[in-house]
Amino acid sequence: MAKTTPAKRVIQELGGIYRFNRVSQKTAAARTGISASAISRRLNGDTSPTIDELFAMASAAGVNVRIEFLPAEAESVA
């Protein structure tokens, strides 16, 4: 089974927000300036959005993005 990457999980979450808020790809394109076909490719996981695109796509869906950098957990040595 293929491992779901953090980037894929973010896009899946954003796709869910689009569906929940009933934001079409056409509407998102008009709000972001990103073509509807490019948004489709991003949401389908065919290509990854840039950070700027991610923020724009989230804003089009009525949500904000917050990125946190947290200390890495130390690996335990057995």
Rank of each mutant, 00 (worst) to 15 (best):
R9Y: 03
A28L: 00
T4F: 05
A36Q: 15
I17V: 12
T27E: 15
Y18M: 10
I17W: 04
A58T: 03
A61N: 01
E13K: 12
V77H: 06
A74Y: 07
R9G: 09
I17F: 00
R66D: 13
P49H: 10
L43F: 03
L14W: 04
F20L: 14
F20T: 14
G33I: 02
E53T: 01
D52R: 06
V23M: 08
S76D: 14
P49D: 11
E68P: 01
V77I: 09
A78P: 13
K8R: 15
G45Q: 09
Q12F: 07
G16S: 05
L70A: 12
G15M: 03
R41D: 14
K3F: 07
V10C: 04
V10K: 05
G16H: 05
F20S: 12
A61C: 02
E53W: 00
M1P: 10
R41L: 15
T32G: 00
A61G: 00
V65Q: 04
F69K: 13
A36K: 10
S59M: 07
N64C: 06
A30Y: 08
G16W: 07
E53K: 04
E53Q: 08
S35V: 02
K8Q: 14
S48Q: 15
R22V: 07
S76P: 09
L43R: 05
K8S: 10
A28T: 11
E73C: 04
S76K: 14
E13D: 10
A36P: 15
A78G: 13
R31G: 01
V10M: 11
G16Y: 03
P71F: 02
P6C: 03
I67Y: 05
V65P: 07
I39A: 07
S59W: 06
A28P: 02
R41I: 06
T47F: 10
M57W: 00
V65W: 02
A56H: 04
V10E: 13
A29I: 05
M57Q: 08
I17K: 02
S35N: 12
R42H: 14
L43G: 04
I39S: 07
L54W: 00
T5N: 06
A72K: 09
E53N: 14
T50P: 06
I11W: 05
V63W: 01
T50Q: 07
I34G: 01
L70M: 12
T5Q: 13
E53P: 03
I67L: 15
Y18G: 00
A60S: 08
Q12L: 12
L14C: 06
R31Y: 02
G45H: 05
G62L: 03
A61I: 01
E75Q: 11
M57D: 04
T4H: 10
